[in-house]
Design a protein around this nucleic acid. Structure first.
Lengths: 398, 398, 398
DNA sequence: GACGTTCTAGAATATTCGATA
DNA sequence: ATATCGAATATTCTAGAACGT
């Protein structure tokens, strides 16, 4: 008959299991406790005698409950018999237990039977309550924190709205300033030229293509001006190819009838008001509206205000259109466009190039005129010229 | 002998207690189970007989353990006897139990004995524990997330501070630039007029107060320039309709093709320089300080230091004051003011007025001086001068 | 005949079901309780005998109601027979029950029969459970809130990036504009000086190095201009102290008394254009890239492409270098630098110096050239023309 | 610290009673 | 009135925990 080994090398089988095994193997106990008929389980046939006679021989007690406790501790389970719940089942009290690794004749399985661990986990249910309280407290704290953060966020959103508005305003003003500056430049240049051109005979010469003088050496020189020098851009507007009439146009521009300055804002605004605020957009009319991520608003470009005077005035709009075309409905992409837009490339260069060209040709023209003029005589500013000017002014202001 | 009542009115005493009481009161059981010597506890003298003979007579089972379970359920405790630890005390196995409200002869106390609640809560403690663990884990995660977000927020706050400062700086510079530009314009205008006035015969008239000619219509007239039309202020005087000189060029400048009127806003814009940062304000001197929502700080304007020269130095302050007056202590409202501020209205006009005044008086003064100067000598612009000028331009662009 | 197994691995079938099954399988009970004709249900044929004879053999009671209670507990339902509506059909009182998983011969279905849960729970665990549920719900809510906030944050980050880029662009353009303006001023100045200096006697003096006359007071004067007063730089050359014309006015304008350098910063400002965005930096070329707090990137300046014409093209780089030197690797500190940057100090002076030098030399050169040019021809502006203009002006201002 | 003994508690099912629809 | 259910108690089996070895 196989005996469970307590040899070294293998984990020692607990004493209880060894005793239980021995207890069952002892034929002298077979009328009190024995394997079940198929050797799968074991049965305590006489509870009374077992506890009072057998148990003390193997253990330090005579309590069936203690024995059962041990069985449970090692994972044994009671086998429910049909007659378990009988009202008058006085005698057939067969207490049957079972364990997957406790089978008759299979002593080698015993080492698989593990005692349940001490379950050292303090007072779970009790602590749970305390912990839950802590959790609730923390939750409350976190909620406050969240609330604070949300407030901060909202404040920053407002800040940013204001910032965008401010930047938009700055941009607008800058554009206008730029235009003003351009005008001053033009004015200065025309003044110079004007003084020259003013000569009665010279008027004709303003037509660009019709000069007989040698092409301006200067212009050649000017052409060598390194690009990237934006300043030159602005001068481009100075050189109307054949400017003779311009004035009329200006006139219109400057006299919007009532001419309250605010009127200009509106009229103007649409064109440059291209500003995009993520989460916020500034409408063409200057009003700010929110653009939630969810309700994607319309894209708007940051494309700077066009200062393009003269003929190159469409360049910025162009750039804008490009962006808008790409992302007509997606603010995200607009933002991305802004963020990814290479400032050193793209429209800037284009503009610059154009402007430079413009500028240079302007200067060429001016020089040409100057040359031709100067070649003949001094400049005389004649009264009729002024006359014309004033008349012009008068009209426009109306 | 008193019998525990099951009468109405008082909470019914559980069957177990009634049975236990009856069981102890029955003298026929006294050799198996009985009150202790002092009537404070009760003892099971013969475990075997008790479970197999007595119990079935009172309960639906014959298990001592079930009986003990009930005792425990009602709060009874086992009384540890001295011989409990003895190994061979098989016979004196007196199982003794006790309960504060279970005393011999005190049946009225029985109703104080409460069965322990069912504690049936499915898998509450177990699942609760697991769930609570999950909750705690999530809480920790969320805390980290919160922390991260807070950091991000703080960074953005700093960013925005810098942004505001930057924008403030830009605005300030823009304003100054604008002023500079205005002055240039003034200068140009006065120059032009100066040149004109230079005419020998006309000199007189330019002196404002000391002319025999009609009183200075100009100054008077100038003052009548319609407000709000700043551009016209600056340039209107320059371009008489039919003038063939300057005007031409200027003309071009002013007509950037499509000629959106937006260009004009800028000139007026300076008035807008009142900006407030929520949570952050930029002091007039450019320093940034924090304004928490709690400790509402004072609103302050981004309006750069006023460089207003001459008499119009109060214009910016004016605009600022307006806003501050409205919202002297509430940054929120200031932000709102910015956001809702109607770009086409407001202080702009005020400023304009001032600026115009300023401008006009400046011009007046300039003219005066020019007159007096010019009265002595005459300016001659020679053609080669122009030449040089262009050369000069070329050089600088290098 | 199949017997319901109590083997391991499968959830144990409750005793009640086992007993019920055994009870029905026992032919000795067939006259009291049995399967229905089709094996779908089972019937209690004799209520009396069933409860009083059969039940006690299987259960701890003899109450039909208790048995039925158990049936209900396990989901059995009574089958309403046709005679159910009959008034006195006591004899054929066939009590029939049914369960979808309780079918004759289908013992394997028994394990699908589940007892209804106890439903009752004590207060403590119950509340704990509810509380935990609340906590879990709150946690979920908070997570959503967090997610929302994170989204908002991200949007704002993008916004700010765009803002920074925009501001950078504005700054760049402003700087360029400023330079343009400076040139205009220079030009005007040289023009003026030309005009004035044009006076035969004055020419000599303008030549800087080669004059026999007293050294150019202008240049000297200019050099003496207190630093930090940039405005004066630009114009100082214009107004030799005693010049009585325009220049004076301009002068005043540009020197706002105390003349803290900050006022001039703007003119000079380009140097300050070093701005760093926490979490985001704008490269010199204007592109924006992210700078995480972790991987601290390099500070970079917003300083637009340097448009510095002439010799002063290094000014911007200079300023940038200064800041970078201070905080070569720490974006935080850069931000701080921006925030704490004293607008009235620092690099501005440096730049100014350079610019001034540049400017002055430019002007000197211009003057020289102008002188030499003007010495040859003269421009005559005739008075009557001027007259007309002024009249015109008067009119237009209407 | 693992194991053993004991007492008590947990948990599921079982039994009973009464409420409810 | 019946069928189902709620709830308290009861019974059983298993687990927790204290204490000792």
């Amino acid at each position: 008959m196989k005996e469970p080994s307590t040899s070294v090398g293998s984990p020692p089988v607990p004493a209880f299991l060894m005793k239980l095994w021995a207890l069952l193997e002892d034929p002298s106990n077979s009328d009190v406790i024995t394997w079940s008929w198929n050797g799968q389980n074991f049965c305590i046939l006489d509870e009374q005698r077992f506890s009072k006679e057998i148990l003390p021989k193997y253990f330090k007690h005579n309590n069936l409950s203690s024995f059962i406790r041990q069985l449970n501790m090692y994972g044994f389970r009671k086998v429910m018999s049909l007659e378990s719940g009988l009202l008058k089942s006085d005698h057939g009290s067969c207490i049957e237990f079972q364990h997957p690794f406790f089978k008759k004749g299979k002593a080698e399985l015993l080492e698989n039977i593990k005692r349940k661990m001490s379950t050292v986990k303090s007072e779970d249910p009790h602590l749970t309550q305390e912990d839950l309280q802590k959790v609730v407290t923390e939750l409350k704290d976190m909620k406050e924190v969240q609330s604070d953060m949300d407030t901060k966020l909202e404040n920053m959103r407002r800040e940013n709205k204001a910032l965008w508005k401010e930047v938009s305003s700055l941009r607008r003003r800058h554009t206008q300033q730029q235009k003003l500056l351009s005008k001053v430049l033009q004015f200065i240049m025309s003044l110079m030229r004007g003084n020259i051109v003013m000569a009665p005979k010279r008027k004709r010469q303003l037509t660009l293509e019709s000069t007989q003088s040698p092409p301006p050496k200067y212009s050649r020189h000017i052409l060598q001006i390194p690009e990237g020098v934006q300043e030159e851009v602005y001068f481009s507007s100075l050189n109307p190819e054949n400017s003779r009439n311009k004035v009329l146009e200006i006139h219109e521009i400057f006299s919007p009838g009532e001419g309250t300055s605010e009127d200009y804002v509106d009229v103007v605004e649409p064109a440059q008001s291209v500003t995009v605020i993520p989460g916020t957009s500034i409408n063409p009319d200057g009003s700010v509206r929110e653009v939630t991520a969810d309700s994607v608003g319309q894209l708007e470009s940051l494309a700077g205000p066009n200062l393009n005077p003269g003929n190159s005035n469409a360049s910025n709009e162009l750039a804008l259109d490009v962006i808008q075309a790409n992302t007509p409905e997606d603010p995200e992409s607009v933002i991305n466009a802004i963020l990814n837009e290479n400032c050193t490339t793209g429209n800037a260069d284009i503009l610059e190039r154009d402007e430079i060209q413009d500028f240079l040709s302007c200067i060429d023209a001016s020089l040409e005129e100057l040359q031709s003029m100067l070649s003949r005589k001094k400049l005389n500013v004649e009264s009729d010229v002024i006359d014309e000017m004033e008349i012009q002014l008068f009209k426009t202001e109306h």
